[in-house]
Structure formats: structure tokens, C-alpha cells
Design a protein around this nucleic acid. Structure first.
Lengths: 115, 115
DNA sequence: CTGTATCCTAGCTGATACTG
DNA sequence: CAGTATCAGCTAGGATACAG
């Protein structure tokens, strides 16, 4: 038996992979997440300087990550207004994916080296 | 304790993630791999038609995948010459990563739907 | 038949200046 | 300070013709 997958399952799987890729790929999303996880909540400007991301990109990334519930955005009642971003609990659910990627990436580098 | 990671570990992890991302992201690599895994070895032209990828892109993708030991390339002694591509055993090692991505992608879609 | 060369387009990314 | 507008460069991906 070569394959028992239906077209529908195939589409679902493909879609699921694309959804995940959308969240983990790209130049900045995981970097931002790592910073927020390691260093805790941070304001927009801090994050921009800390990661070296220009405001335009950072804004776009944070919006997408907020839509995907990976970061929370809190407007603080200060003057002038400041905004704090933080990694959500839900972001932890990505850990399995990221760990799998780290593990494979490390052993892969070994595997390739031996040629 | 917030973080006990060294700069070096951080770099390694980041590098490993990028290596994995390089292999699984992009529009075609996983599609090609899925086809070769499900339908077995296939010639260049077949693959091109089957997946609907133009030769230029397919060639580039296959070269990269071959460098990463994910596919094998066998020149057949036919006339005119034909070339068979197949998924390697090593490609199976990606399964954990892909499964993690499928799993997260599916549950994520549910998580987002509820908002 | 396998692959490459050429040309083209759309989208991602970045620097910078600016608005509220 | 947070975020957007504008402009510019780069890269991924694609159509097509062609070479070996």
C-alpha cells in the first residue's frame, strides 16, 4: 500500500503546514518571540532597538503575531502613552515545533558535514 | 532564573532553526518530497508536470534538496538519457519536524477560529 | 528528455521622515 | 513614544525559449 490518504486529508495537511510555516518562517517572528520569552515584556521602542528591527517591519510582525495570539499588546496608562508587548501562554504551544526544528537542524548539520 | 543560555548556545539554536527552515520552507520543497514519498521515484519531466512546477524552479529545488541529501538523482542509461529522482531514507528524518508542524497547524486553526 | 538562460513580476524587507 | 507613509532594493517565483 503506497498511500491511503484522501485528497481532503492531503489538503488539510498541506494547509496545516502552511499555517505553521507562516508563523515560524520569515526573518523576525521567532527572534521577537525569543526576546519576549527570555527578557519578558517590552515596549515597542525597546523591542525595536533590542532586535534591530525598523519600526515599519516590527509593527507588521507584531500585528500578525497578535492576530495569531502569540503576543499580547497592552496600552499603558502613561503620559505619553506606552505599549507593552509580551509573549502569551499560548506561544508555549510552539515549543514542540521549535524543538523539533532545532533538533533536526543540529543533527542535519552533522549529517551534511560528513560528506 | 530567566535565562541560562550562553551567547554561543543562542547562536547554535538560531542557526539550527534557520537550517531547518531552509529545508522545509519555500513553496515547493515539501510538495516535491511528498510526491516522491507517496508516488515513488519519478523522472524530471514527470515531476514537473505532476507538480506543476516550471523546469527552472524544479531544477533549482532538486539541486538544493540533493545537496541536503533529501533526494537522490540517478541518471538512467537510456536513449535519450532520463533521470530519476527519489526520496532518500534520510528524508524520513524530517518526519518528526513535519508531524510537529502539522499537529500545531491543525490545532492552531482551531484555536484561532474560536475568536 | 533534462536542464539552463533570459526576462519579468510581486512581495518582502529596510531607511527615513513624518503624524498623533 | 507608538506607529505609518513613502520610497527603494532585493529575492522568490514564474513563462518561455533554447541548448545538450
Amino acid at each position: 500500500m503506497k498511500s491511503n490518504h484522501t485528497q481532503k486529508n492531503c489538503s488539510n495537511v498541506h494547509l496545516a503546514i502552511q499555517d505553521t510555516l507562516y508563523v515560524v518562517s520569515g526573518k523576525w517572528k521567532l527572534v521577537i518571540l525569543a526576546i519576549l520569552v527570555n527578557d519578558g515584556k517590552m515596549r515597542f521602542g525597546e523591542l525595536s532597538r533590542h532586535a534591530g528591527i525598523s519600526p515599519r517591519i516590527l509593527s507588521k510582525e507584531l500585528q500578525e503575531m497578535e492576530m495569531n495570539k502569540l503576543v499580547s499588546r497592552t496600552v499603558m496608562d502613561t503620559k505619553p502613552v506606552t505599549v507593552e508587548y509580551a509573549a502569551t501562554e499560548y506561544a508555549d504551544s510552539l515549543k514542540e515545533v521549535i524543538d523539533a526544528m532545532i533538533k533536526w537542524g543540529q543533527s542535519h548539520r552533522e549529517a551534511i558535514k560528513e560528506s
